[in-house]
Simulated scan of single mutants.
Amino acid sequence: MKLLKQLYKIHSPSGKERAMKKFIRKYVKRRIPDITLKSDRKGNLYMIKGSAETYPCIVAHLDQVQKNHSNDFIPIETKELIFGYSPKHRRPEGLGADDKNGIWIALRCLEKYDALKVAFFVEEEIGCRGSIEADMDFFMDCRFVIQPDRRGCKDLISSIGWTGLCSAEFLKSVGYEKFGYQETDGMMTDVLPLKERGLAVSCINLSCGYYEPHTDREFTVKEDLINCLHWVEHIIETCTDVYPHIYNMYKADGRYAFLWDDEYEEAVNEIFGMLDMDDTLGVDDLEYMYGLYFPHLTKEHFIQIYQAYHDLRQDDLLEESEDYNEEQQDFRNLEFLHQTASFTNGFIRKTDFSDKVASGKCSFIKESQKQENLG
């Protein structure tokens, strides 16, 4: 895990990936022989190891969302987890495991295999700006493309919206059930622009063991990350054919059709959860954080979700206030009844005493009268 923690220590927000690129270049040149490196005008990195007719290919992105990254930031490793922490500020800080976990897998595979292609893209988190301008000739001799850039431990992303990413033959060949994965639909990431720009082979996006991405509570489950690495290695070793796949986007009424209801519902759940943790976030913050993952949401949608959250929150606060007022009224009523009961009991005792005096039934009155008679 030493390499992984080194990657976590490097802060690489979108548009400021220079330190990460510098580290990767130095690491590769020192540790991995027979490798060719190049970059394009956008700043994407491309690596080719060995010489082959066709190559397996891994892609990952260099940037992260989190803004907090103190000078004393440290990744803390336990038996099962890794999370980020600032001792000075006594607060958790995001690892950027989305997608440093993918970078780690790519570098591990570069060290292990004789023939492999790897691409690292900039600015994925703000709209896949790097992969949109990728050098597509780099992928001409690839057998398939794998991107480890999905939270959790079991998702095999074979489509994004209604855009299919891979062939049925490739899905059958990768053996995902053996590693505990299941096929599902995903959100926008770099393999989608590659596919839209003409990538003619199968590609997939995989869960790689990070959780609560884009937050300062982000953490990695080591077992899940290692399982993903082992599966990627299995695909590289067993899928030696080229797996063609032609991009196809279904249309309806001349417009792109997407699984809109599912996307919107997921966006609401994600954003509500984030606002529960930090209700100071504004619409622009939410759009920045989630615009990539929900590419079909407009500014108006983010405003609607934001207002819906705060409307519900206001209702909750009002309900809590009403409950509190009812509790206070109940308390005052109870206090009044208690005081009334005390007064009544005292009055009863006084009245009883007066009655006894009037009737001459009080013992000390009787005794006093007796003494007077004797006198």
Results as ranks from 00 to 15, higher is better:
R108H: 12
P75L: 05
K112G: 00
R150A: 14
P92G: 11
E77W: 01
K88P: 04
Q66M: 09
F170G: 06
D98M: 04
E80Y: 05
L110Q: 06
V174F: 03
L62I: 11
V59Y: 05
G164T: 12
V122S: 07
I103G: 03
V174E: 09
L81M: 03
C166Q: 04
S158F: 06
E80R: 15
E177Q: 02
H69A: 02
W162A: 13
I105G: 04
D141R: 05
N68R: 15
N101I: 02
A106N: 01
L95K: 03
D114W: 09
R143V: 08
G127I: 04
R151L: 03
C109L: 13
D141N: 11
I74L: 11
C153G: 00
K88I: 02
S131Y: 01
F121N: 10
R150L: 12
S167T: 06
K117E: 05
L165M: 13
H89V: 00
G161L: 06
Q64V: 07
K172G: 08
D63L: 02
E80W: 06
E133T: 11
I76G: 08
K117Q: 00
F120A: 01
R90C: 06
P75W: 08
R91M: 15
K112P: 00
C153D: 01
Y176I: 06
I74C: 07
D155R: 15
